[in-house]
């Protein structure tokens, strides 16, 4: 079996496993923790498309996430749209914002892009705080529809439905989306586009003079990254059934999205996945056993420790360990 076939069979296998889990596992805590870790993982993968492959630091992941969440709220309020329309709108909206931010700042040195994304975060939070239609500072509640159907199939219900409740459905949706994101990242890594990104990360001027359209590549990468963050944000309000600007635009989301790839390793999609799964699990355990402040401290310490002592993250450590074995 070629490595490609193997990879895709594992992806499909995981998707099936995720569905079986929603049918068989009763303890709802696992879905809660799983959802949190999946969200970390997807945000980390999305951040890595720009941060890891291109080397541009995005501090505003929470902006794209929050704008996605609020785009979903808006279409729900205004058009009474269903879950899937909401999620798609969320992704598209964040993609547009990402493209615009990139167009304004990606011509500058990377540092300025980083600061601009941080600014974007505060601007968008302030705008939403002052916009009462989507709840303003008080936040908004989301009431899930009862017994939704797609193509005549009952999706969520007590009996004869695909999922027992909304949390399980959303867990499954995020799972599928996570797997799709992994596939996207892997495709990028192996494409001409990905090699272009790599070239411009290593030396932007050299890449440019070799005919790599650097600005266009950066814009595409930013747009993909932002839209994935938006999709993730689009699922979030439905899952929480309540959302306010402070939780949707929280800087914690940004630091997590950036820390996971740097801790796991930025070179391939495996790094963010490893980082998110290991640290996310650690965070969940710390939240339950100690306190929720501790889990941010863990991320901070890991982040600083890894960037100083293990610049290539878990992946780098694994590689080193293997080489020593030979």
């Amino acid at each position: 079996m070629t490595s490609n076939n193997k990879f895709y069979s594992i992806i499909v296998g995981l998707a099936v496993l995720a569905y079986l889990a929603t049918a068989l596992v009763d303890n709802q805590y696992y879905f809660f923790a799983g959802f949190a870790i999946l969200q970390l993982m997807i945000m980390a993968l999305a951040w890595n498309i720009l941060g890891g492959y291109v080397g541009y630091v995005n501090f505003g992941s929470a902006a794209f996430f929050g704008l996605g969440a609020y785009a979903a709220i808006f279409v729900m309020e205004y058009f009474k749209a269903d879950l899937f329309t909401q999620i798609i709108t969320a992704g598209c909206f964040s993609a547009i914002v990402g493209l615009a931010t990139g167009a304004l700042t990606l011509r500058l040195r990377g540092v300025y892009f980083a600061i601009a994304t941080l600014a974007l975060l505060v601007v968008s939070e302030t705008l939403i705080l002052n916009w009462d239609y989507v709840g303003g500072a008080a936040g908004a509640y989301i009431l899930p529809k009862r017994n939704p159907t797609v193509l005549g199939l009952l999706i969520v219900g007590k009996e004869n439905a695909l999922f027992g409740n909304y949390k399980e459905l959303l867990f499954f949706v995020l799972c599928i989306f996570g797997l799709v994101t992994i596939v996207i990242c892997r495709l990028i890594e192996r494409s001409k586009f990905g090699r272009g990104l790599e070239a411009l990360r290593d030396n932007e001027q050299a890449a440019e003079s070799m005919g790599v359209p650097t600005l266009r590549l950066k814009l595409i990468a930013t747009t993909i990254s932002a839209s994935i963050m938006g999709f993730t944000g689009g699922v979030f309000p439905y899952y929480m059934t309540f959302i306010d600007p402070i939780s949707a635009f929280n800087l914690d989301i940004s630091v997590n999205a950036l820390a996971m790839p740097l801790i796991g390793g930025t070179a391939t999609w495996l790094g963010p996945v490893l980082g998110a799964v290991v640290l996310g699990t650690l965070q969940q355990i710390a939240t339950v056993t100690i306190s929720s402040e501790i889990n941010l401290l863990i991320v901070g310490l890991f982040l600083v420790g890894f960037v100083i002592f293990a610049p290539d993250g878990f992946l780098g450590l694994i590689k080193k360990f293997r080489n020593r074995g030979d």
Partner: peptide, 18 residues
């Protein structure tokens, strides 16, 4: 560019949480 920025971001979070 990449890790130095992340370093200060991490330092910021450590100060805050402490």
């Amino acid at each position: 560019a990449l890790r130095g920025l992340a370093f200060f971001f991490g330092v910021m979070f450590i100060i805050e949480v402490l």
